[in-house]
Design a protein around this nucleic acid. Structure first.
Lengths: 343, 343
DNA sequence: CCTTCGCGTGGTAGCGCTGTCAATATTGGC
DNA sequence: GCCAATATTGACAGCGCTACCACGCGAAGG
């Protein structure tokens, strides 16, 4: 019958309470709502906990309170630099807080995302950060009925599940093309890898802007579903040049691709920007170190992660932000690779 | 007195057991040691669980069993591509397994690492993956008394805490320099950023090899504690050229730095490799896409993460690997940037 | 002086699961 | 056909913490 599992060396909350001369529940409150204790007891419990080296048992806490202090984070890729920055923002914001992070990788699959969502929500996280706005209908309904705050990151749209922080990839795509048009380029190609929903929307911005200028030409578009990489950038450019040798500028949906394009130009002795202008996307660190420096659309990835985490925590703790949708914007960083023709 | 907290909609193990017509403990065993059940009951419990959509409560399981199925991972940086690959290996290996990952970032601080170690171990993880072999004495003793398997990754050394997987950065540094010597270069510089312990050991390999060849010259060494980046690569080269204009090759402790060096060469119209050879480290994806292609030391990062996770799981489940130290080696990828002089 | 209020504190009873060990079915050996 | 050995199953009592409620007390109000 039963067992004697209690290890003698184990320091439990009860021991702390005993040493402090209070009831266990009072000691418990010290760790959750210290302001509810009288100053005297607060000090007593604090020193007792310190003396015993007490560390709360999170499993017991989770079981008793029916919730955890875990924030689930779903991102599509661990390799993509873009998400590394977002993650850094999230980790920095949550560093030193009571919350811990549970990270999972959807591999750009909304079905995988749905599966992970079920897995996460079953453990009652304190909050959730998910990437993008293209969840399955099923995922949406799971999240809508979840009883924790949720922040969608990377993009903004019109109907958030709960909260949202990001920017419009469509408008960013438009801005990139408007910049090239303003610089005097007219045969503007599009090179896209992966073609995930966000790349698609940049592409839509590209299309809309060129259509408006009556300069849209499907022969100028080369895409692949392969992941973006420097190498693929070279291949995409090679493909584009064979289809449309008169192209005078390319908008690359990723900076990796833009870097690959730059090297392909070097390989083929195509002058940048005189023969071909290049615009990338995300403004990764290397874009201002290349020769020539590469124009790119800067996105605030670190801030996105950081602010998403802050919004989430505020919301968890009952201080819901006024505005559920935060537009972090973007900025076209104009560099040498898109200098006006013949300047 | 007490409370009625039991939500009616909640599906617990007891419900599954009732529907399956078995005792709760038998249902419990189905999820842990299904082979211990008779086939008939196994089927009954399985279909009952499916019908009810039962999801185990991990907090309760952790509390009752006094252990978790969480694998803690401590890495120094979220930004560095190198760790992204390692992480991908870990996540891939653990995908679909019962284990979940708890990731934390030490920011290259062994004190921060010690703090995180305490935090992690207090929650009784199933296993731990830590980066490198340079823990504090305190950290080491904490880990040695932990009752879970631990894998140190990225490097190998002589006295593992438990298990180890990586390669010798010292030997890798030696190999890079031996390659340059073999190609006929003699004034070989070293450019290092961050100067974390692993970079230090590559540097030691550099020094030892050049000393042996009587070609070591402290003026050829330029380092910074700033994080590695493409931009810093250019700055380091500029610094090196001002101190030692006769340098004919550089070994960059990171590929980012190597890329920055390449661009700085383009900026200064220094021919690579005719005037300056370049060798990088890690063999990131872009190294074979540059113009000229860049020589680098390939390290098996994905495999390192993957195999570390596999070793850990095997060990957790009682199948300790024969050999606690796994050397994954490295390979000098010889490319255009280190072609022999005048070839 | 008594009532009302709210603060600070404590008692009790679980949260949902599993370790231990005993009890029962099943098998094989002679 | 009987007994020991093995395979299955179940009862019980927690794991360490917190939700709920109750209670005592001093201050404010009448």
């Amino acid at each position: 019958m039963g067992r004697k599992r209690t290890k003698p060396g184990k320091i439990r909350l009860a021991e702390v309470a005993r040493l402090a001369g209070v009831s266990p529940i009072t000691a418990s409150r010290f760790f959750r709502t210290p302001e509810a204790l009288s100053v005297a007891k607060r000090v007593r419990v604090e020193s007792a906990a310190k003396e015993l080296g007490y560390v709360p048992n999170l499993a017991a806490r989770a079981l008793a309170s029916q919730r955890t202090e875990v924030i689930g984070v779903l991102i599509p890729s661990l390799t993509n630099n873009v998400f590394a920055d977002v993650l850094r923002g999230i980790y920095d914001a949550l560093d030193g807080s009571r919350y811990s992070i549970q990270l999972a990788n959807t591999r750009y699959s909304i079905l995988q995302e749905e599966k992970l969502l079920r897995l996460f929500l079953a453990q009652k996280p304190a909050g959730l950060i998910v990437t993008g706005i293209d969840q399955t209908a099923e995922s949406r309904s799971i999240m809508e009925s979840a009883d924790c705050p949720i922040v969608q990151i990377m993009e903004i749209g019109s109907n958030p599940i709960d909260m949202m922080i990001g920017f419009s990839h469509y408008e960013a795509g438009r801005a990139a093309i408007s910049h090239l048009l303003a610089q005097g380029f007219g045969r503007i190609g599009f090179l896209g890898a992966r073609m995930d929903p966000r790349v698609q929307r940049r592409f839509e911005g590209y299309q809309a802007t060129l259509k408006q200028a009556a300069l849209l030409d499907p022969r100028l578009v080369v895409t692949t579903t392969l992941p973006s990489s420097v190498k693929i950038g070279g291949a995409l450019l090679a493909d584009l040049l064979s289809k449309a040798p008169d192209v005078d500028a390319v908008f690359c949906a990723n900076d990796d691709v833009a870097l690959g394009v730059l090297f392909e130009c070097q390989r083929r002795r195509i002058a940048v920007p005189d023969q071909l202008a290049i615009v990338g996307f995300n403004d990764l660190e290397f874009m201002e170190a290349t020769v020539p420096t590469l124009t790119s659309v800067r996105t605030n990835r670190y801030e996105m992660g950081r602010d998403a985490a802050v919004m989430l925590v505020e919301s968890i703790e009952g201080r819901r932000p006024q505005e559920p949708i935060v537009d972090l914007g973007f900025k076209v960083m104009e560099r040498q690779s898109s200098w006006p023709r013949g300047s």
